[in-house]
């Protein structure tokens, strides 16, 4: 997503092109980040082409093939490579479709909390005074609760489901973006270029979002990648507690919750969704590390 934002800027500003090249130079120096990126692209492709890749419909129940083990185990069947679950649905297909949900959660939660958080943060930092106080107090209140507990109660109010889980998670992520945006705006506000723009007669909105904001993006992008991976984890955790996506949705956390009763007997229904969550989050975090190194000049050489 940060890629896209940066690319669109390239054509207009030659100095940005140089910065992008520099960014890519530092990013690609980090081997882990490149691996993460490659894997992430693989997941995105998997999500987009899930209907083509998945061998079966993820909700189709094969009554004659309930809890079939993966193909390499005794009793495994070639048409169900990673086995089947308790009602005979193909694990591989469900895992493949699961990428759609997890990436979707990541994208929506990040976008939602980024946009809303930045708007409030910029307003707070720009106007200060009572607006600032009011916004920051609300953020303090949100931060006073453990995020998962607050999300859990919110979902209980809104009703269990993936969409409501996403809303709840974005809400609890708000304060981080608000604080970052506010701090960045406050430090930029007195810079010469802002004063110059103000003298030239730019309005509040223009000053806030066109002049100041683009210069505060680095920490926000780093925070956004962090939110992306935490959102996937938290959505899965809510699913695990029965408050996220509802069955038969092939969301990984929900699959795990449904499979819990088989922990002693059918390892694949329990282990595989967890592995899927872990490697997806790991890939995004690897990428995030690379992004941070490339964007944050202070840490660049570490």
């Amino acid at each position: 997503m940060s890629q896209a934002a940066a690319t669109s800027a390239v054509s207009t500003d030659p100095s940005r092109r140089a910065r992008l090249a520099e960014f890519w130079y530092y990013f690609s120096e980090n081997r882990g980040a490149v691996i993460g990126l490659v894997f992430f692209i693989f997941l995105v492709l998997l999500a987009i082409f899930a209907p083509l890749i998945a061998p079966h419909d993820p909700t189709q129940q094969y009554r004659d093939a309930v809890l079939v083990p993966p193909v390499w185990q005794e009793g495994g069947r070639a048409d169900f490579l990673l086995g089947t679950d308790a009602v005979g649905r193909d694990m591989l297909s469900r895992l493949v479709y699961g990428t759609q949900f997890s990436l979707f959660v990541g994208v929506i939660v990040t976008a939602l909390s980024l946009v809303v958080g930045v708007v409030f943060g910029v307003i707070a930092g720009y106007f200060r005074g009572w607006v600032d106080t009011a916004i920051m107090r609300v953020m303090d209140i949100i931060l006073a609760f453990p995020s998962l507990l607050l999300a859990l109660v919110l979902v209980a109010i809104l009703g269990p489901g993936l969409v409501n889980a996403m809303i709840a998670i974005s809400l609890v992520y708000q304060p981080h973006f608000v604080r970052l945006a506010r701090a960045a705006v406050m430090s930029e506000k007195t810079r010469d270029y802002v004063v110059a723009a103000k003298v030239a007669g730019a309005g509040h909105t223009r000053l806030m979002f066109k002049t100041i904001l683009p210069n505060c993006m680095a920490p926000l992008i780093v925070q956004a990648t962090l939110s992306f991976s935490s959102a996937i984890l938290d959505a899965a955790a809510l699913g695990f507690l029965g408050m996220g996506a509802q069955p038969p949705t092939p969301e990984w956390g929900t699959m795990l919750a449904e499979a819990r009763e088989f922990i002693q007997s059918k390892w694949w229904v329990v282990t595989l969704p967890g592995v899927a969550i872990l490697i997806t989050v790991l890939a995004i975090n690897l990428m995030g590390d690379g992004l941070r190194d490339a964007l944050d000049p202070k840490l660049k050489r570490s």
Partner: peptide
């Protein structure tokens, strides 16, 4: 980093 990415309920 693996630890940081861990879904702890599964762990």
């Amino acid at each position: 980093l693996v630890g940081f990415s861990m879904p702890i309920f599964w762990w």
